[in-house]
Design a protein around this nucleic acid. Structure first.
Length: 706
DNA sequence: GTTTAGGGTTAG
């Protein structure tokens, strides 16, 4: 038994849907038919019977089949005018590119090193120019003139392998060029080693056999070691401003901007690192899908196509896979944009074909598209959200991408806004475009924060002169005490009761002074002035004494220590004064009338302008549309639910801040893994060298108690 | 059995 598949000779004249049908031959007829027929031959069948095709569902051919089981059944085989592969292979001889002779007719194989999409020549035809090379390492320019665009070779990228039949070799400017001539044909193959060898051609008939496969394999192998292949790895996520690059993508939508410009909205499934240009198009002028959700996620590239490329762009259908060649990435200002705001990345396919500039659609099944398709498939969940009404779209627009379709991320996880602002949440890109002053709500993740050493986020701030400084480290403070204690002679003040003792080190005397008014009061009520102690000693002593004021003597008069050191030790807390705003020294302090000594009272008596403890953290926030640097400053204590001064003397509280920061930005985590947080942002301007600088501060935002 | 192009960045 033998099965043959035959097709209607002229499908256009066929009135039925199925133009191919199975024929079953039996016995001698099967054997004879097998020996005399070649693919492409015309057959004439008579006296068959018609039965249901059992393979209809599987092979999608005609639901019936023809069975040649009748004793009168016969078949005539008419050899086709098109020669079969077996007879044609020997006819083609391929000339190496270094052996081309002028004025000869040749067939060649080569690897494409450069090519241009077909462009209109000044004559009657479209022209394709390309450059090829082979193992001889000679490069030859080829020119193909042909009236019909669809008959031009299907070259997708540098590295493709092309076979040229019936080309004329000509000398031009000291080198040989190839031009198509009568009866010409071209076949191309992709240059990827070990990928299936599938001929691409628009020729009506072409010969292709085992010898061709071998030749393609040889050239692929050779080319792989020559680094001829163009870089097709530029994705939207890696594109940089001012680049020229080849870009493989899918067309989402298109719109005619004016007679000289078509907008193509495309994506490759990766997110651009820079904000992408948004081009406003009225919905009824946009052909294809609404890209709002993808725009929002910085996934949609807007390509403006001009001049000679309009012809190709006009015929493209949304959903098509495209490759742009030598596309230009440019930073552009949005109309009405303020000078300080970031520019947006747009893409231009300007006129001309230099460096191969152009675009073409790629057949959906080409192996060139495998990686693109696999990236796009990861975004399938997005599409469902685009078939929704405007209200939902608006919501998606204002929702960070990862929370789309993920219920568990829908609500704020770690922060809550405590303000009364009734503003709709906006994107960071919109924040940057806004005009200060302004309060707004955003949802973002923490990309980075400073200082990374969290103890450095504790600052000293003078509310009078607005000076801010770091908390001095222990070694600096210890040095001040050490210097002061050296060769110190205890001071002698009339108002103080003094007791002194020798330290273990020779020459250092430790003294303690208490106001005579306070003698006999319990120790926690007392204000004790200490002299000649080291930092360690004061620290030990301060465990049991609430108010220790370190002093030194100058000409037997009691003087404050340098204000780099704390002016007061109280339990584990240390209080600092502002060098600029404090009085130089204190004389005859008045201690009467003070019932309880706290840091305020001590500062007042000593003439010290006390510095406040504050938290200061700079966050880099990211919500995909943009990033901004926002300070956590005035509302930092509310944010953490921790007082800065308490944290200054308490390791547990410092650890709690570290824990919160590790939740917001888990160590070693990628941005995508970090929690979304809701922030109230205050946008304001600050004079900076006579220029107005826009600043962002996190206000009215608190960590949710876990 | 003619001609075209014969690579090398627009300027929106």
């Amino acid at each position: 038994m033998l099965r043959a598949e035959i097709r209607e000779e002229d499908p256009l004249q066929s009135t039925t849907e199925h133009t191919s049908i199975n024929v079953i031959f039996f016995d001698t007829l099967a054997k004879d038919f097998s020996q005399s027929v070649k693919q492409g031959d015309i057959v004439l069948l008579a006296n068959f019977t018609i039965s249901k095709s059992p393979t209809f569902l599987r092979d999608k051919l005609h639901p019936c089949q023809l069975e040649m089981d009748n004793k009168d059944a016969c078949v005539y085989v008419c050899p086709s005018a098109i020669p079969g592969p077996s007879s044609s292979e020997a006819k083609y001889v391929y000339v190496p590119l270094n052996k081309l002779k002028s004025k000869t007719l040749v067939n060649v194989y080569g690897v494409v090193t450069f090519f241009k999409q077909p462009f209109p020549s000044k004559g009657s035809d479209y022209c394709t120019t390309l450059k090829i090379t082979d193992q001889s390492d000679v490069k030859v320019i080829c020119t193909i003139f042909c009236k019909k665009l669809e008959d031009h070779p299907l070259i997708f990228r540098v590295g493709d392998i092309i076979r040229l039949h019936r080309f004329k070799a000509e000398a031009f400017r000291d080198s040989i060029t190839l031009i198509n001539t009568f009866g010409w044909s071209t076949v191309t193959f992709n240059g990827i080693i070990d990928s299936p060898i599938v001929p691409r051609t628009s020729s009506k008939s072409f010969f292709y056999g085992e010898a061709d496969k071998r030749r393609v394999q040889e050239l692929r192998q050779w080319a792989a070691n020559q680094s001829l292949c163009s870089d097709l790895n530029t994705s939207l996520s890696s594109v940089q401003p001012h680049m020229y690059f080849d870009f493989t993508c899918q067309l989402l939508a298109k719109a005619v901007m004016h007679s000289g410009c078509i907008l193509l909205k495309v994506w490759d499934g990766t997110r651009c690192q820079l904000p992408l240009l948004q081009v406003a198009v009225p919905p009824d002028e946009l052909e294809g899908e609404c890209t709002l959700a993808k725009d929002k996620m910085n996934l949609t590239a807007n390509v403006l196509v001009y001049d000679n490329h309009l012809e190709v762009a006009r015929d493209l259908k949304p959903g098509a896979f495209l490759r742009f060649y030598n596309l230009r990435a440019l930073l552009q200002k949005v109309p009405g944009q303020l000078p300080d705001q970031p520019e947006h990345l747009g893409f231009h396919l300007h006129g001309g074909t230099v460096y191969g500039r152009g675009l073409r659609s790629l057949p959906a099944e080409t192996p060139d598209l495998l990686s693109l398709k696999s990236v796009l498939e990861k975004h399938v969940d997005l599409d469902e959200h685009e078939e929704v009404n405007d209200g939902t779209l608006l919501e998606i627009w204002y929702t960070p991408p990862e929370s789309i379709g993920a219920e568990e991320n829908a609500g704020p996880a770690y922060t809550v806004q405590t303000c009364e602002h009734n503003t709709q949440r906006i994107t960071l890109a919109q924040v940057k475009r806004s005009t200060p002053p302004l309060s707004c709500h955003v949802r973002a993740r923490v990309k980075k924060y400073l200082p990374q050493q969290l103890y450095q986020c504790l600052k000293l701030f003078c509310s009078k002169c607005k000076t801010m400084k770091d908390v001095p480290d222990d070694s600096a403070v210890a040095n001040i005490f050490l210097e002061s204690a050296r060769d110190n002679q205890p001071c002698d003040e009339q108002w103080a009761a003094t007791s002194s003792a020798n330290s273990r080190e020779p020459g250092r005397t430790i003294s303690m002074h208490v106001s005579k008014d306070m003698v006999g009061k319990s120790s926690h009520m007392q204000l004790i002035f200490i002299e000649g102690m080291t930092l360690d000693e004061i620290s030990v002593l301060s465990r049991d004494h609430k108010n220790l004021v370190p002093v030194r003597s100058e000409n037997s008069k009691m003087t404050r220590m340098d204000l780099t050191a704390p002016f007061l030790f109280s339990g584990k807390k240390r209080y600092y004064g502002c060098k600029q705003c404090s009085r130089n020294t204190f004389e005859n302090p008045v201690f009467t009338g003070v019932e309880t000594w706290d840091e305020q009272a001590v500062a007042a008596v000593l003439g010290v302008q006390m510095m406040q403890y504050r938290f200061l953290i700079q966050f880099e926030l990211d919500d995909v549309t943009d990033t901004i640097e926002a300070l956590l400053w005035e509302d930092a204590e509310r944010f953490f639910h921790i007082s800065a001064v308490d944290a200054s003397g308490c390791q547990d509280l410092q650890d709690r801040i570290q824990t919160i920061m590790d939740t917001i930005q888990p160590p070693e985590s990628s941005l995508e893994e970090r929690p979304w947080m809701d922030f109230c942002l205050s946008v304001y301007t600050v004079k900076d060298n006579d220029r107005n600088k826009v600043c962002y501060q996190i206000t009215n935002t608190e960590i949710v108690k876990q």
